[in-house]
Amino acid sequence: MTHPSLPKRPMLGRLPVLRSPIGLAHAVTALLAFMIVADVLGFGAAAYMMSVMGDVASGGGAGDVGLGAVDRAVWAVGMTTSMYMLGLLGTATLFIIWFHRVRHNAEVFAPDVQRRTPGWAIGGWFIPFANLFIPRGIAKDVLRASQPDPYASEVRHQGLLNAWWGMWIASNIFDRFATNRYDEASDPQAIHDAAGWLMTGSVLDLVSAVLALLFVRGLTAAQNDKAMAGRQPLRQPAPQYPAAGGPVTGGGPVPGA
Score class of each variant (00 low, 15 high):
Asp225Met: 08
Asp112Glu: 12
Gly246His: 01
Ala69Arg: 08
Pro253Cys: 07
Gly90Arg: 14
Trp165His: 03
Asp64Thr: 15
Ala45Asn: 08
Pro128Ala: 06
Arg217Met: 05
Thr81Lys: 12
Lys140Ile: 02
Ala227Trp: 11
Gly250Tyr: 01
Ala152Glu: 08
Tyr48Thr: 07
Val142Pro: 03
Ser51Trp: 02
Asn172Ala: 13
Arg116Asn: 07
Ala257Glu: 10
Leu143Arg: 01
Phe177Glu: 03
Arg19Tyr: 07
Met228Tyr: 13
Asp187Trp: 00
Lys226Met: 05
Gly42Cys: 00
Asn105Glu: 04
Met49Trp: 00
His26Ala: 14
Ile97Asp: 05
Ala30Ser: 13
Ile97His: 12
His192Ser: 11
Ile127Glu: 05
Pro255Val: 12
Ile127Gly: 07
Ile36Asn: 05
Trp165Asn: 08
Ala222Val: 05
Pro118His: 09
Gly196Tyr: 02
Ser146Cys: 10
Gly13Pro: 03
Ser20Tyr: 10
Phe109Tyr: 04
Asp39Val: 03
Ser5Met: 04
Ala212Cys: 13
Met228Trp: 05
Trp164Glu: 06
Thr200Asp: 00
Met85Ala: 14
Met85Lys: 01
Phe43Gly: 07
Asp183Ser: 13
Ala190Tyr: 01
Arg115Cys: 01
Asp55Thr: 01
Ile36Pro: 03
Ser58Val: 07
Ala69Lys: 13
Ala76Ser: 15
Asp205Val: 03
Met49Gly: 15
Trp165Leu: 03
Ala163Ser: 06
Thr2Ile: 00
Gly245Glu: 04
Asp149Ser: 11
Gly68Thr: 09
Ala25Trp: 01
Val70Pro: 01
Gln240His: 02
Ala46Gly: 10
Thr249Val: 09
Phe43Ala: 08
Ile22His: 13
His3Arg: 14
Phe34Cys: 14
Asn162Glu: 01
Ala194Pro: 00
Pro150Ala: 07
Pro237Arg: 04
Asp112Met: 09
Arg144Val: 08
Met49Ser: 11
Val17Leu: 12
Ser208Ala: 15
Ser146Tyr: 04
Leu161Gly: 09
Pro150Ile: 09
Ile97Arg: 15
Pro247Thr: 14
Val108Thr: 14
Leu18Cys: 13
Gly251Leu: 03
Trp98Leu: 10
Arg231Phe: 06
Met83Pro: 01
Ala212Ile: 09
Tyr84Trp: 13
Met85His: 09
Met53Lys: 00
Ser153Ile: 15
Leu6Trp: 11
Val216Asn: 02
Asp205Met: 07
Asp225Cys: 00
Leu6Arg: 15
Asp187Glu: 11
Met49Ala: 15
Pro10Val: 05
Met199Ile: 02
Ala257Gln: 10
Pro10Tyr: 02
Met49Arg: 03
Gly159Glu: 06
Ala33Met: 10
Asn180Ala: 12
Thr93His: 06
Met53Leu: 00
Phe174Val: 13
Pro188Tyr: 02
Ala139Phe: 12
Ile36Thr: 12
Trp197Lys: 03
Tyr182Gly: 02
Met228His: 12
Asp225Leu: 11
Lys8Leu: 13
Ala238Met: 05
Ala46Gln: 08
Pro16Gln: 02
Leu214Ile: 00
Tyr241His: 04
Leu94Gly: 14
Ile122Val: 15
Tyr241Lys: 01
Met35Cys: 14
